[in-house]
Design a binder for these strands. Structure first.
Lengths: 364, 364
DNA sequence: CTGTTAGCGCCTTCAC
DNA sequence: GTGAAGGCGCTAACAG
C-alpha cells in the first residue's frame, strides 16, 4: 500500500541496496546515482519504514523519558531539556508513571519492547526495597540489551553503580551501557533552607513533607533534621511533620491546616516543594495569617511560578533544565559518564519574600 | 542475542505461532498450552520485539503528541491528559516543536516513519498560508496512511474538515482516519475578558499580545476588538497593542514597559496568556504601580499557578485537561468524531483580584 | 485448537 | 560503486 524502498529503487533504476545506502548515508555512493535516488524519493514522497529498519538494523531512535507527571513543570522542564539535547532524529517517548512503581515497570517493559536506544528516569523513587530491587533488575536487563539508562534527580540504584572507582581503577560507571545517575542534593538543599529559617530566628518550624514512601521526601526531611541537630535543637518529628499524599497544592493546604491544629505556635512552614508551598500559603491566608509577618513559608525546586507567587517563595533552586539537558546528552552518548557513574548536582538557596523573622510575640 | 519468540516456542514445546497467539490474546488457545507458554515467557524473561511485530502486523502502538513547549504547563496538562486516555499499551511520543513550523513538519515525518497510530497536534498554528498548506498536505498523507490525526487547541485546517455536514447529510469528519479538530474559543474568551474590563470602567486598555504570526494571538486580539467595537469604542490597535516575541514572562515584562512608554494613561493590560501576564505584573510593580489599584492585569488560560500569583490573576479558563483527554480518546478511537469533525470548546471568564475598577483620577 | 508457510520492508554481508 | 541474496522477529493466512 505505502511506497517502499523497492518502489524508489525501481523508479531510480537502481537496486534497493543502493537506495538504502543513499538514505543511511554511511556508505560511498556515486554522486549521480545519489541525486537520482533522492529525486525518486522526493517524487514518490517516500518515507522510511521505521519498524522495518529498526528490525533489520536492530536499533531504534526512540528514547524513553519516565516522569511522575508531565503536567508538573518540574518534570516538564526536565523532559523538555532532555528532548532538546537528544538531536533531531531521535524521538522522546514521555511516559507518565503517576509515581506508581508498577507503571514504572510497565513502561520500562514497553520501552524494552520498542528496543529504545535509551531511557531517562526522572524524579525520586518509591522508598521500598522490593520495588527498588525489581527496578534495578529490569534496568540492568535493559542496559545489557544495549539501552543506555540515565537516572535524573534520583539516587543511584543499590548495587548498580559502584561507589567510586573499583580497586583496579576502572570506573565502571563510564562503560557504555552502564547506568548513569544525576542525583539532586535534596538533603543539602533542605539543610540550607532550614538553616536560613533558623538564622532568621525561627524555633517552631513545621513541615508539610511529601508522601512518606518517597526517597525525595526522606532526603529533604533528613536535611531539615540535620540543620536542627547541628544547632542542638530537638527535631519533634511526630508533632511538627505531616506527610501529604502527593506533591500537590491540596496536600499543602490540608497539611498546613493539620499543622496549625497540632502546633499553633509555629512561625514557619517548610513545604515538600513549591507546589505544596502554594497550598500551604493558601491555607494560612484562609486562616487569617499573613505571610511572612505571621508565618514564613518555604518551598523547594524553584519552579518558574514561584517568583511570581504572592508572596514570592523562598525556596531551593534545583538546576532542572541543565540537569535534564545533561541527562539527554548522556542518553545519546554525546557526553561521557562521570567517574563512578554518579554525580550530585547542587541545590541553591533562594531567599525571597515568603520568609522573614518570626513575629516578636506569638500573635496567637 | 536477545531471546526471541522461537526460543519461547522451543522451551514451551509449541510453535512460534502459538506463542504469538497467546501473547496477543486475540485468538483461542487451550488453557493448558497457554499456561505453559506463559511460564516459558516468564522463565526466559521474554519481551516482544516491537519493531518486528509492528512490521509484520503493519501497526504500531506509538501516538505522537506535538507541543510547542512541554515545559509550559499549558502543554504539559494537555499532554498528560492525552496520555492518561490512550491506554496502557500505547506510548505517547511527545515532540517539542518550539513553535517552529519546520520542526513541526520534521516531527510529523519522523512519526510517519514510525507508522504512528495517531498524532495529536496541540496549540495554535503559525498564521501563514504556505505553512498551513504544507501542514495540511502532510497531515492528509498521514491520515491516508491510517494515522488518526487530532488537532487540539487549534482551528481546523483549511480544506480539511468541511464546515458542517455535507449537503448529502454525511458528516465527513466522522469517518475513521479523518482529521478531527478540538478548537478553543479564543475569540469568545478574549471578548468576554475585555467586556469584563469595560464593565469595570476601564477605557484605556493595553494589550501585550503574543507573536504576531500565530493564529492564537490573532484570535484573542480579535475578541478584544470585538468587545470594544460592540460598545462603540475605538480600537487604537497600533498604539495600544504590542506583540511579544514569545508567550513567555520576558515578553510580558518588556511589552508592559513599552506599553507604559506609549500610553502612560492606561489603566488595564490584557496579556497574551497567564505567563505573559505574570511578566506584565512584574514590570508594573518595578515601575512602582500597584495591581489592581493603579493598573488591572488579565491573563488567559487559567494555569494552576495563576490562582496563587500575587495578585491572583483574572483570566479566561480553558479546559485544558478535559480537552486533552478527549483528544486522547479521539486518537485511539475510544470516542467518535463530532459531526463535521470540529468542536469548539468554551472558554470561561475567571474574575480574581488582579482586575478592579480603574483609579478615579489618573494617578500619573 | 495448533503447526506450517509466507512474507512484512529494510539492512548488510558478499560477490561482481 | 553497485547488485543479489539472506535474514532480522513476528504475524497472518492456510491447512490439518
Amino acid at each position: 500500500m505505502a511506497v517502499t524502498l523497492a518502489d524508489v529503487a525501481a523508479r531510480a533504476g537502481v537496486s534497493a541496496a543502493t537506495v538504502s545506502r543513499v538514505l543511511s548515508g554511511n556508505y560511498p555512493v556515486a554522486d549521480t546515482t545519489r541525486t537520482r535516488v533522492l529525486r525518486a524519493v522526493d517524487d514518490l514522497e517516500y518515507v522510511v519504514n521505521g519498524p522495518a529498519s529498526a528490525l533489520a538494523a536492530a536499533t531504534s531512535d526512540l528514547i524513553g523519558v519516565l516522569v511522575n507527571d508531565i503536567a508538573d513543570p518540574f518534570f516538564g522542564i526536565i523532559a523538555g531539556a532532555v528532548q532538546s539535547e537528544i538531536g533531531d532524529g531521535k524521538l522522546a517517548v514521555v511516559c507518565n508513571t503517576g509515581g506508581s512503581p508498577e507503571r514504572e515497570l510497565t513502561y520500562l517493559t514497553l520501552l524494552q519492547r520498542q528496543r529504545a536506544a535509551a531511557v531517562v528516569i526522572t524524579g525520586g523513587a518509591v522508598d521500598d526495597d522490593a520495588h527498588q530491587a525489581a527496578l534495578a533488575a529490569r534496568l540492568r536487563r535493559l542496559s545489557d540489551g544495549g539501552t543506555q539508562v540515565v537516572l535524573c534527580g534520583r539516587s543511584p540504584l543499590p548495587g548498580t553503580a559502584p561507589a567510586g572507582a573499583t580497586p583496579s581503577g576502572r570506573d565502571t560507571g563510564a562503560e557504555p551501557g552502564g547506568i548513569v545517575t544525576l542525583a539532586f542534593d535534596n538533603t543539602g538543599g533542605a539543610q540550607r533552607l532550614t538553616e536560613h529559617l533558623l538564622t532568621l530566628g525561627h524555633r517552631h518550624i513545621g513541615c508539610v513533607a511529601g508522601p512518606a514512601d518517597r526517597t525525595t521526601s526522606r532526603h529533604r526531611l533528613e536535611g531539615h533534621r540535620r540543620a536542627l541537630t547541628a544547632r542542638g535543637l530537638p527535631t519533634e518529628d511526630e508533632r511538627l511533620t505531616v506527610h501529604g499524599g502527593a506533591y500537590d497544592r491540596a496536600a499543602g493546604y490540608d497539611g498546613a491546616l493539620e499543622l496549625l491544629r497540632r502546633a499553633p505556635e509555629l512561625t514557619a512552614v517548610l513545604a515538600a516543594n513549591d507546589t505544596v508551598a502554594l497550598g500551604v500559603c493558601a491555607a494560612l491566608r484562609d486562616q487569617g495569617l499573613r505571610i511572612p509577618e505571621d508565618v514564613s513559608v518555604a518551598g523547594f525546586d524553584d519552579l518558574p511560578a514561584s517568583q511570581d507567587a504572592g508572596p514570592p517563595l523562598s525556596t531551593v533552586r534545583l538546576p532542572l533544565h541543565s540537569a535534564g539537558a545533561r541527562a539527554g546528552r548522556l542518553a545519546v552518548g554525546r557526553e561521557g559518564a562521570p567517574p563512578g557513574g554518579v554525580t550530585t548536582v547542587r541545590a541553591e538557596l533562594i531567599s525571597r519574600a515568603s520568609t522573614a523573622p518570626p513575629p516578636h510575640r506569638p500573635s496567637r
